[in-house]
Nucleic acid binder design. Structure first.
Lengths: 151, 151
DNA sequence: ATGACATTGTTGCGCGGTCAACTATTCCCG
DNA sequence: CGGGAATAGTTGACCGCGCAACAATGTCAT
Protein backbone atom coordinates (compact mmCIF):
# COMPACT_ATOMS: atom_id res chain seq x y z
CA UNK A 1 0.00 0.00 0.00
CA UNK A 2 1.51 3.26 -1.10
CA UNK A 3 2.19 6.09 1.30
CA UNK A 4 -0.75 8.49 1.40
CA UNK A 5 -0.03 11.87 -0.12
CA UNK A 6 -1.97 14.14 2.19
CA UNK A 7 -3.21 17.50 1.03
CA UNK A 8 -0.80 20.33 1.71
CA UNK A 9 -2.01 23.61 3.18
CA UNK A 10 -2.81 25.18 -0.17
CA UNK A 11 -4.69 22.13 -1.31
CA UNK A 12 -6.60 22.01 1.96
CA UNK A 13 -7.55 25.64 1.58
CA UNK A 14 -8.61 25.08 -2.02
CA UNK A 15 -10.69 22.09 -1.13
CA UNK A 16 -12.48 23.75 1.75
CA UNK A 17 -13.12 26.99 -0.08
CA UNK A 18 -14.49 25.13 -3.06
CA UNK A 19 -16.72 22.79 -1.07
CA UNK A 20 -18.07 25.46 1.23
CA UNK A 21 -18.42 28.09 -1.46
CA UNK A 22 -20.30 25.63 -3.62
CA UNK A 23 -22.62 24.64 -0.80
CA UNK A 24 -23.40 28.25 -0.02
CA UNK A 25 -23.87 29.07 -3.70
CA UNK A 26 -26.29 26.24 -4.42
CA UNK A 27 -28.20 27.02 -1.29
CA UNK A 28 -28.47 30.68 -2.23
CA UNK A 29 -29.65 29.85 -5.73
CA UNK A 30 -32.19 27.40 -4.40
CA UNK A 31 -33.57 29.92 -1.97
CA UNK A 32 -33.75 32.64 -4.59
CA UNK A 33 -35.71 30.46 -6.99
CA UNK A 34 -37.93 29.06 -4.28
CA UNK A 35 -38.90 32.39 -2.78
CA UNK A 36 -39.11 34.44 -5.98
CA UNK A 37 -40.63 31.83 -8.28
CA UNK A 38 -41.75 28.87 -6.22
CA UNK A 39 -39.49 26.44 -8.07
CA UNK A 40 -36.67 24.38 -6.67
CA UNK A 41 -33.28 24.60 -8.32
CA UNK A 42 -33.56 20.96 -9.36
CA UNK A 43 -36.94 21.49 -11.00
CA UNK A 44 -35.73 24.67 -12.63
CA UNK A 45 -32.88 22.80 -14.26
CA UNK A 46 -35.24 20.19 -15.62
CA UNK A 47 -37.31 22.92 -17.22
CA UNK A 48 -34.15 24.41 -18.72
CA UNK A 49 -33.12 21.06 -20.17
CA UNK A 50 -36.55 20.59 -21.73
CA UNK A 51 -36.57 24.12 -23.10
CA UNK A 52 -33.28 23.48 -24.87
CA UNK A 53 -34.34 20.16 -26.36
CA UNK A 54 -35.74 19.89 -29.91
CA UNK A 55 -39.51 20.05 -29.69
CA UNK A 56 -39.23 21.01 -26.04
CA UNK A 57 -39.30 17.33 -25.17
CA UNK A 58 -36.93 14.67 -23.92
CA UNK A 59 -37.06 10.98 -23.24
CA UNK A 60 -37.19 10.22 -19.53
CA UNK A 61 -33.87 8.44 -19.64
CA UNK A 62 -32.22 11.34 -21.44
CA UNK A 63 -33.60 13.71 -18.89
CA UNK A 64 -32.16 11.52 -16.15
CA UNK A 65 -28.76 11.41 -17.80
CA UNK A 66 -28.69 15.12 -18.54
CA UNK A 67 -29.75 16.09 -15.04
CA UNK A 68 -27.33 13.69 -13.35
CA UNK A 69 -30.04 12.10 -11.26
CA UNK A 70 -31.64 8.68 -11.11
CA UNK A 71 -34.54 7.55 -13.25
CA UNK A 72 -36.85 7.23 -10.32
CA UNK A 73 -35.98 10.76 -9.39
CA UNK A 74 -36.96 11.94 -12.85
CA UNK A 75 -40.20 9.97 -12.76
CA UNK A 76 -41.20 11.70 -9.54
CA UNK A 77 -39.96 15.11 -10.63
CA UNK A 78 -41.91 14.92 -13.88
CA UNK A 79 -45.03 13.87 -11.97
CA UNK A 80 -44.53 16.90 -9.77
CA UNK A 81 -44.04 19.23 -12.73
CA UNK A 82 -47.00 17.66 -14.48
CA UNK A 83 -49.20 18.37 -11.49
CA UNK A 84 -47.99 21.96 -11.62
CA UNK A 85 -48.97 22.11 -15.30
CA UNK A 86 -45.46 22.88 -16.55
CA UNK A 87 -44.77 19.56 -18.21
CA UNK A 88 -46.86 16.87 -19.88
CA UNK A 89 -46.09 13.25 -20.57
CA UNK A 90 -46.29 12.18 -24.21
CA UNK A 91 -46.08 8.57 -25.30
CA UNK A 92 -43.29 7.62 -27.61
CA UNK A 93 -44.59 6.29 -30.93
CA UNK A 94 -41.50 4.40 -31.98
CA UNK A 95 -40.94 2.75 -28.58
CA UNK A 96 -44.00 1.71 -26.67
CA UNK A 97 -42.05 1.64 -23.42
CA UNK A 98 -40.92 5.18 -23.94
CA UNK A 99 -42.16 8.42 -22.53
CA UNK A 100 -41.39 11.97 -23.43
CA UNK A 101 -41.51 14.79 -20.96
CA UNK A 102 -42.63 17.87 -22.85
CA UNK A 103 -42.59 21.46 -21.71
CA UNK A 104 -46.03 23.07 -21.77
CA UNK A 105 -46.72 26.69 -22.65
CA UNK A 106 -47.25 27.35 -18.96
CA UNK A 107 -43.92 25.70 -18.24
CA UNK A 108 -42.16 27.85 -20.79
CA UNK A 109 -43.80 30.93 -19.31
CA UNK A 110 -42.78 29.90 -15.83
CA UNK A 111 -39.22 29.42 -16.98
CA UNK A 112 -39.17 32.77 -18.75
CA UNK A 113 -40.45 34.44 -15.62
CA UNK A 114 -37.96 32.75 -13.33
CA UNK A 115 -34.87 32.98 -15.52
CA UNK A 116 -33.89 36.64 -15.08
CA UNK A 117 -33.86 36.41 -11.31
CA UNK A 118 -31.90 33.20 -11.42
CA UNK A 119 -29.31 34.53 -13.84
CA UNK A 120 -29.04 37.63 -11.72
CA UNK A 121 -28.31 35.51 -8.67
CA UNK A 122 -25.73 33.44 -10.56
CA UNK A 123 -23.99 36.67 -11.55
CA UNK A 124 -24.22 38.21 -8.13
CA UNK A 125 -22.93 35.19 -6.27
CA UNK A 126 -20.47 33.79 -8.78
CA UNK A 127 -19.50 35.55 -11.98
CA UNK A 128 -19.26 39.00 -10.42
CA UNK A 129 -16.46 37.61 -8.26
CA UNK A 130 -14.51 36.00 -11.09
CA UNK A 131 -11.87 37.58 -13.25
CA UNK A 132 -11.69 36.54 -16.89
CA UNK A 133 -8.64 34.44 -16.15
CA UNK A 134 -10.27 32.74 -13.19
CA UNK A 135 -13.36 31.97 -15.19
CA UNK A 136 -11.31 30.47 -17.98
CA UNK A 137 -9.31 28.35 -15.56
CA UNK A 138 -12.41 27.11 -13.82
CA UNK A 139 -14.04 26.29 -17.15
CA UNK A 140 -11.06 24.33 -18.35
CA UNK A 141 -10.41 22.54 -15.10
CA UNK A 142 -13.97 21.42 -14.52
CA UNK A 143 -14.45 20.47 -18.13
CA UNK A 144 -11.49 18.15 -17.70
CA UNK A 145 -12.78 16.81 -14.39
CA UNK A 146 -16.19 16.20 -15.87
CA UNK A 147 -14.72 14.33 -18.81
CA UNK A 148 -12.69 12.18 -16.44
CA UNK A 149 -15.66 11.37 -14.23
CA UNK A 150 -18.01 10.64 -17.12
CA UNK A 151 -15.94 9.50 -20.07
CA UNK B 1 -36.49 46.59 -14.08
CA UNK B 2 -33.04 46.40 -15.60
CA UNK B 3 -32.30 44.47 -18.74
CA UNK B 4 -31.16 40.94 -17.92
CA UNK B 5 -27.54 40.26 -18.74
CA UNK B 6 -27.70 36.68 -19.92
CA UNK B 7 -24.71 34.40 -19.72
CA UNK B 8 -22.57 34.42 -22.84
CA UNK B 9 -21.30 31.17 -24.35
CA UNK B 10 -18.15 31.04 -22.23
CA UNK B 11 -20.08 31.72 -19.07
CA UNK B 12 -22.63 29.08 -19.98
CA UNK B 13 -19.87 26.57 -20.56
CA UNK B 14 -18.21 27.50 -17.29
CA UNK B 15 -21.43 27.22 -15.35
CA UNK B 16 -22.38 23.85 -16.79
CA UNK B 17 -18.94 22.33 -16.46
CA UNK B 18 -18.70 23.49 -12.88
CA UNK B 19 -22.15 22.30 -11.86
CA UNK B 20 -21.90 18.95 -13.57
CA UNK B 21 -18.30 18.33 -12.60
CA UNK B 22 -19.14 19.11 -9.00
CA UNK B 23 -22.13 16.79 -9.01
CA UNK B 24 -20.07 13.95 -10.44
CA UNK B 25 -17.23 14.63 -8.03
CA UNK B 26 -19.36 14.64 -4.90
CA UNK B 27 -21.14 11.55 -6.06
CA UNK B 28 -17.86 9.76 -6.70
CA UNK B 29 -16.49 10.73 -3.30
CA UNK B 30 -19.67 9.62 -1.61
CA UNK B 31 -19.59 6.27 -3.31
CA UNK B 32 -15.93 5.72 -2.53
CA UNK B 33 -16.44 6.39 1.17
CA UNK B 34 -19.64 4.40 1.34
CA UNK B 35 -18.29 1.29 -0.34
CA UNK B 36 -14.76 1.33 1.10
CA UNK B 37 -15.55 2.51 4.63
CA UNK B 38 -19.30 2.44 5.15
CA UNK B 39 -19.49 6.16 5.89
CA UNK B 40 -21.36 8.81 3.96
CA UNK B 41 -19.48 11.87 2.80
CA UNK B 42 -21.60 14.02 5.10
CA UNK B 43 -20.82 11.90 8.14
CA UNK B 44 -17.16 11.74 7.19
CA UNK B 45 -16.99 15.51 7.17
CA UNK B 46 -18.55 15.71 10.61
CA UNK B 47 -15.90 13.35 11.92
CA UNK B 48 -13.21 15.50 10.31
CA UNK B 49 -14.58 18.64 11.92
CA UNK B 50 -14.61 16.98 15.33
CA UNK B 51 -11.11 15.62 14.88
CA UNK B 52 -9.81 19.11 14.18
CA UNK B 53 -11.56 20.72 17.13
CA UNK B 54 -9.79 21.25 20.47
CA UNK B 55 -10.55 18.29 22.71
CA UNK B 56 -12.11 16.51 19.74
CA UNK B 57 -15.41 18.12 20.65
CA UNK B 58 -17.70 20.79 19.32
CA UNK B 59 -20.93 22.41 20.41
CA UNK B 60 -23.87 21.24 18.35
CA UNK B 61 -24.47 24.69 16.98
CA UNK B 62 -20.85 25.08 15.96
CA UNK B 63 -21.00 21.75 14.24
CA UNK B 64 -24.10 22.88 12.38
CA UNK B 65 -22.45 26.12 11.32
CA UNK B 66 -19.20 24.46 10.32
CA UNK B 67 -20.92 21.75 8.31
CA UNK B 68 -23.30 24.16 6.60
CA UNK B 69 -26.35 22.18 7.59
CA UNK B 70 -29.32 22.78 9.85
CA UNK B 71 -29.36 22.11 13.57
CA UNK B 72 -31.93 19.38 13.28
CA UNK B 73 -29.74 17.77 10.70
CA UNK B 74 -26.84 17.78 13.12
CA UNK B 75 -28.99 16.40 15.92
CA UNK B 76 -29.94 13.45 13.76
CA UNK B 77 -26.48 12.95 12.34
CA UNK B 78 -24.92 12.93 15.80
CA UNK B 79 -27.52 10.44 16.97
CA UNK B 80 -26.56 8.27 14.03
CA UNK B 81 -22.84 8.59 14.75
CA UNK B 82 -23.49 7.94 18.40
CA UNK B 83 -25.29 4.72 17.57
CA UNK B 84 -22.30 3.73 15.48
CA UNK B 85 -20.05 4.42 18.46
CA UNK B 86 -17.99 7.08 16.72
CA UNK B 87 -19.27 10.06 18.68
CA UNK B 88 -20.63 10.63 22.17
CA UNK B 89 -22.74 13.45 23.55
CA UNK B 90 -21.27 15.34 26.49
CA UNK B 91 -23.22 17.88 28.50
CA UNK B 92 -21.89 21.39 28.60
CA UNK B 93 -21.02 22.48 32.13
CA UNK B 94 -21.13 26.21 31.57
CA UNK B 95 -24.40 26.18 29.64
CA UNK B 96 -26.98 23.71 30.79
CA UNK B 97 -28.75 23.87 27.42
CA UNK B 98 -25.58 23.01 25.62
CA UNK B 99 -24.32 19.77 24.20
CA UNK B 100 -20.94 18.77 22.93
CA UNK B 101 -20.43 16.16 20.28
CA UNK B 102 -17.16 14.41 21.04
CA UNK B 103 -15.20 12.05 18.87
CA UNK B 104 -14.64 8.66 20.49
CA UNK B 105 -11.51 6.57 20.08
CA UNK B 106 -13.47 4.32 17.74
CA UNK B 107 -14.49 7.39 15.75
CA UNK B 108 -10.91 8.56 15.48
CA UNK B 109 -9.88 5.10 14.35
CA UNK B 110 -12.66 5.00 11.79
CA UNK B 111 -11.58 8.34 10.45
CA UNK B 112 -7.95 7.31 10.28
CA UNK B 113 -8.93 4.20 8.37
CA UNK B 114 -11.15 6.04 5.91
CA UNK B 115 -8.96 9.08 5.30
CA UNK B 116 -6.32 7.67 2.94
CA UNK B 117 -8.88 6.30 0.51
CA UNK B 118 -10.81 9.52 0.60
CA UNK B 119 -7.78 11.70 0.03
CA UNK B 120 -6.76 9.40 -2.78
CA UNK B 121 -10.13 9.86 -4.43
CA UNK B 122 -9.97 13.64 -4.02
CA UNK B 123 -6.58 13.59 -5.74
CA UNK B 124 -7.65 11.23 -8.48
CA UNK B 125 -10.83 13.09 -9.33
CA UNK B 126 -9.79 16.65 -8.69
CA UNK B 127 -6.24 17.70 -7.89
CA UNK B 128 -4.63 15.42 -10.44
CA UNK B 129 -6.48 17.39 -13.11
CA UNK B 130 -5.48 20.82 -11.82
CA UNK B 131 -2.41 22.79 -12.72
CA UNK B 132 -0.83 24.91 -10.01
CA UNK B 133 -2.25 28.03 -11.62
CA UNK B 134 -5.73 26.55 -11.85
CA UNK B 135 -5.64 25.45 -8.27
CA UNK B 136 -4.57 28.89 -7.13
CA UNK B 137 -7.29 30.58 -9.17
CA UNK B 138 -9.95 28.24 -7.85
CA UNK B 139 -8.77 28.79 -4.29
CA UNK B 140 -8.87 32.55 -4.61
CA UNK B 141 -12.13 32.69 -6.49
CA UNK B 142 -14.04 30.40 -4.16
CA UNK B 143 -12.56 32.00 -1.08
CA UNK B 144 -13.98 35.28 -2.35
CA UNK B 145 -17.35 33.72 -3.18
CA UNK B 146 -17.55 32.09 0.21
CA UNK B 147 -16.77 35.35 1.97
CA UNK B 148 -19.46 37.09 -0.03
CA UNK B 149 -22.07 34.44 0.70
CA UNK B 150 -21.25 34.23 4.41
CA UNK B 151 -19.84 37.55 5.51
C1' DA C 1 -39.43 -17.30 -35.45
C1' DT C 2 -37.89 -17.79 -30.89
C1' DG C 3 -35.82 -17.57 -26.59
C1' DA C 4 -32.32 -15.24 -23.74
C1' DC C 5 -31.01 -10.87 -22.55
C1' DA C 6 -31.19 -5.70 -22.26
C1' DT C 7 -33.72 -1.50 -21.60
C1' DT C 8 -37.63 1.69 -20.14
C1' DG C 9 -40.27 3.74 -16.81
C1' DT C 10 -42.69 3.15 -12.39
C1' DT C 11 -43.10 1.81 -7.64
C1' DG C 12 -42.26 0.43 -2.47
C1' DC C 13 -39.08 1.14 0.85
C1' DG C 14 -35.89 3.42 3.64
C1' DC C 15 -32.68 7.21 4.51
C1' DG C 16 -31.34 11.67 5.32
C1' DG C 17 -32.58 16.45 5.18
C1' DT C 18 -35.40 20.94 6.19
C1' DC C 19 -39.03 23.67 8.53
C1' DA C 20 -41.83 24.81 12.31
C1' DA C 21 -43.04 24.08 16.96
C1' DC C 22 -41.63 23.07 21.51
C1' DT C 23 -39.04 23.04 26.15
C1' DA C 24 -35.34 24.49 28.77
C1' DT C 25 -32.11 27.78 29.66
C1' DT C 26 -29.62 32.16 29.34
C1' DC C 27 -29.25 37.07 28.24
C1' DC C 28 -30.27 41.75 28.76
C1' DC C 29 -32.30 45.99 29.96
C1' DG C 30 -35.43 48.75 32.78
C1' DC D 1 -34.12 41.70 40.78
C1' DG D 2 -37.68 40.59 37.10
C1' DG D 3 -39.53 39.54 32.90
C1' DG D 4 -39.52 39.63 27.89
C1' DA D 5 -36.53 38.30 24.15
C1' DA D 6 -33.01 35.39 22.33
C1' DT D 7 -30.71 30.93 22.03
C1' DA D 8 -29.77 25.61 22.35
C1' DG D 9 -31.12 21.34 21.13
C1' DT D 10 -34.77 18.03 20.05
C1' DT D 11 -38.83 16.31 17.81
C1' DG D 12 -42.81 15.60 14.44
C1' DA D 13 -44.40 16.15 9.94
C1' DC D 14 -43.10 16.17 5.51
C1' DC D 15 -40.27 15.95 1.20
C1' DG D 16 -37.06 14.45 -2.30
C1' DC D 17 -33.89 11.01 -3.65
C1' DG D 18 -31.57 6.48 -4.54
C1' DC D 19 -31.78 1.40 -4.63
C1' DA D 20 -33.85 -2.75 -5.83
C1' DA D 21 -37.70 -5.09 -7.75
C1' DC D 22 -41.06 -5.19 -11.23
C1' DA D 23 -43.87 -5.56 -15.76
C1' DA D 24 -43.69 -4.23 -20.35
C1' DT D 25 -41.28 -3.86 -24.39
C1' DG D 26 -37.40 -4.06 -27.52
C1' DT D 27 -33.05 -6.42 -29.42
C1' DC D 28 -30.41 -9.86 -31.31
C1' DA D 29 -28.13 -14.28 -32.32
C1' DT D 30 -29.21 -18.46 -33.96
Amino acid sequence: MAETRWLDDDEQATWRAYLEGTRLLIHALDRQLETDSGVSFADYELLVLLSEAPGHRLRMRDLADASFTSRSGVTRAVTRLEDAGWVRRVECDDDRRGMHAELTEAGAAKLAAAAPGHVGAVREHMFDHLSQAEQAHIREAYTRMRAHLRP
